[in-house]
Design a protein around this nucleic acid. Sequence first.
DNA 1: ATGAAAGCGCTAACAG
DNA 2: CTGTTAGCGCTTTCAT
Lengths: 334, 334
Amino acid sequence: MSSSPGRSAKRATILDVAAAAGVSRQTVTRAMNDMTGIRQDTRERVQQLAREMGYTPSRYAKGLVQGARTAIGLAIPDLTNPYFPAFASSVVEMATLRGWNVVVDDFGHGSGSSLDAVKRLSPQVDAVIGYLGPSADKAQALLGQRPVVVLDEPAGLTAGGISFDYSFAAGLALERLGAIGSTRLAYLDAGPATLLSARGAAVSRAAADLGIELTVVHSRDSAEGARDAVGSLVAEYPAVDGLLTFNDLMAAGALKGLAASGRSVPRDCAVIGMDGIPLGLLITPELTTLSLDLRDVGRAAVDLLDGLLTGALPPYGAGSHLTLRHELAIRGSA
Amino acid sequence: MSSSPGRSAKRATILDVAAAAGVSRQTVTRAMNDMTGIRQDTRERVQQLAREMGYTPSRYAKGLVQGARTAIGLAIPDLTNPYFPAFASSVVEMATLRGWNVVVDDFGHGSGSSLDAVKRLSPQVDAVIGYLGPSADKAQALLGQRPVVVLDEPAGLTAGGISFDYSFAAGLALERLGAIGSTRLAYLDAGPATLLSARGAAVSRAAADLGIELTVVHSRDSAEGARDAVGSLVAEYPAVDGLLTFNDLMAAGALKGLAASGRSVPRDCAVIGMDGIPLGLLITPELTTLSLDLRDVGRAAVDLLDGLLTGALPPYGAGSHLTLRHELAIRGSA
DNA sequence: ATGAAAGCGCTAACAG
DNA sequence: CTGTTAGCGCTTTCAT
């Protein structure tokens, strides 16, 4: 009941168990790993003893002698935005298929920057996949020879990368808005008002190219932020009849803001989101969006990493940097 | 450019680098770890060489000699259901605060059972937190002395556990439905029609205790499944005016099903979900739900594990098994 | 500032 | 069936 074994001090080692059982360490190994070449009663006696002594094989010693099992790090800005779990889920699935383990670090809350995440991950993993932002280069430096696959950072100097063709996406959205007769357009960007995101830049450029006027507003990257920002937008710019957002989560918030302002979507104002997360099908109206198959993105990232890890793909090369395209999923909101 | 170093064969070791640099292995260690007692130019030369040779210190050897950094496994049934990332996010945050790493395994897709997940995790981690279902006992057996904290499996024979007071929650929901005048109630459970979930059992019992008649229907644990099931439900049981669902995701689907059937919520039929995930605030009408603070749940799980790991909390004891209560968040749907 | 020796805990290979 | 001998790759003494 109360006589806990070696609760304090150092963990029991294989030698302690061997001594206690009066056998050699090899026999302990055989017992613990259900190997052959050991009598059943010996096996059970040793296992029982190990249990009592709180013995757990050191995973480091084991890994050292057995050769590494690949572990990859996954650095995610915010598991709270449904986009990222959808992506993470796919990465975990693909990695599991290869027998890799995935160590996840979410640096969204207090836990600092993407670089901090990579620092935490570094001693544990053989490679990193992540939304690293502009620190991607530093992350790669931190990992030295181990490959980093960065997402959505086309300029990143990393072994591999996956980015998106936002010009293409923006064209698709603008075209759709034109087709349904929206002419007074706005774009809701994520981030501070002083800084246009890559997506925002692409949308602005596409609009300019088409000679379309575009009002750009900003909010935090969250549904609430978007809802409030859209409230202000319609107050200041009542004529707006078409809205593009940075991502689907913000589109969901925008829909709420529009509803709160008494606008009907898409009649008074059409809305197009970006990313194509499942959430878009649950809200009302269903979200028209620039859709990405997140499972494809995860698969592409893991495939890329696989090539980099095996040497089949040269790091830092053009072949290691993919560009994916969105497609327009037309649903109820535009 | 093209002459990649030791691309194939085995990874370079510290000895290889030492030999190439014409120094001893300690000097390499000093250079790699930015330690003192080494001349600046030596340090740089060694680092440069290491980079060229693709040398990465083995994390196993390092861990072996330096003592383990705690790593916990997180076994998740389905990262695709927004409930789980919300929980995972909190666990990752709390673990990061303690300097622990989190290895995530999602066994939702093809990757088999929770037990498979624990098997994959086992060699990598010092403990496991997870939604393990009835296999929780086996998972604990697999991990031997290392603690398992199981969620939502009150009967699990694990070192620690967190469960929920579904009777209490069911009472809250039924009371609310009564207060707003719903009398022809249905409960939408997740899983096969042959098996009532723990939540379903609690709801049934609570209804029976209150003398309320309750129609129980089943669907897959997904929004689509729920939507379809609710479509059938209203067809067969048109009088239904109050609906409880297994979780919020299914409530979202139910809302869609009701809308498709031309029912207005909550006027024709009130809906109450369970869990209180952020999604509930994005859909229309906003979801009234039995809410849990997922951050609290994650915190509780990690706190528990911490106690178990340090020995402050006795494993398998009553003190290591918590029961949390939902509260009713009244919003638009009921 | 650098090197030599010792050992972390484990398992593979070979005895017996 | 069991034990002995070698290392895995690294960092810690302790010398030099």
